[in-house]
Amino acid sequence: MAAAETIERRPASAGRRLISTFIARREFGIFLVLVALILYFNARNSAFGSKENWATLAEYGSPILIAAVGETMLLICGEIDLSVGHVYALAPLVLYKVAEHGWPLVVGLVVAVGVAALVGLTNGLVTVYLRVPSLIVTLGMFNVLNGISLLISDGSQQLTPTNPTFGKIFGVGDYHTFYWAFGIMLAMHFVLTMTPWGLHTIAVGGNRIGASESGVNVSWIRIGNFVMCSVLGGFAGILTAQHIGTTDPLAGGTGLMFYGVAGAVIGGTALMGGSGTVIGTFIGVAVLTVLNNGFTLLGVDAFYNDLFIGIAILLSMALGFLIGRIRGKPA
């Protein structure tokens, strides 16, 4: 094809391409849903849009977002981690124990994150080499972690060890957990879209055999993503423990895990693997946080809370899919 004769179309600028890609994608649908929810709640109760409510939203949603981002990577590569909510409880406990023995907080942090990584590694090794479905492996793991948490804490809550500097960096203060959550989200988005690791994660989830035939180290990818998910979960737990001042062996748990997975799925990550985005997860978690906070502001009784949130989740997902379908993207 002679270059001189062809009409060359200059490729669209990266910025324009980004925007048009976003609009065309399924995430746009759920983004519209999010905007609609915000407008609705704000109209019903102007306190929703107040500065301090935004801080409340950020505080509530940040741990969920971090766990959800970890789950997103795992879900994309075809696995799931049911134990992320329990690493969330264990990690700050480990930090507490290390500090109790007189070690500096930073050492505690490193050890705690290391323990979280070990949990992820175990999940990964058992899933990959013993060929047990990750659903089962992490089911067993979360019970094990629960037991360990209760044992080392004697079942009781503890005052989180901290000092002004450490606390400020790791979660104390308005929005401090949110900065971390947002930063982690951006970092994972970058990994997923701009690195070979991200490509291979999608490949493993979309066509594991094919990926293997192409030479992708499938085992590495799966184990690596398990480690990443647990590390993020543990780190989120440490941030929360700093933020509220208490280290609770019963923190997080399956509730956090389900919200994390739900956030990812509402944002467009397929439960079956092979597709998903971190930006979508961010929107999905935002939807969940807004729903929760909005209903409370409206004075909804706790008994109705679950019912309403459940219905709202189903509707949000349906709407998101519908909008995406109208725009012509495959479900």
């Binding site: 306190a47 107040s50 409510n53 929360t240 509220i244 923190a251 748990g253 929760n292 906070n293």
Partner: peptide, 14 residues
């Protein structure tokens, strides 16, 4: 879950 209760209190205040 303590964070949920704090969230509810914050919402009540707002």
């Amino acid at each position: 879950k303590t964070p949920e209760m704090i969230n509810a209190m914050n919402a009540a205040i707002s």
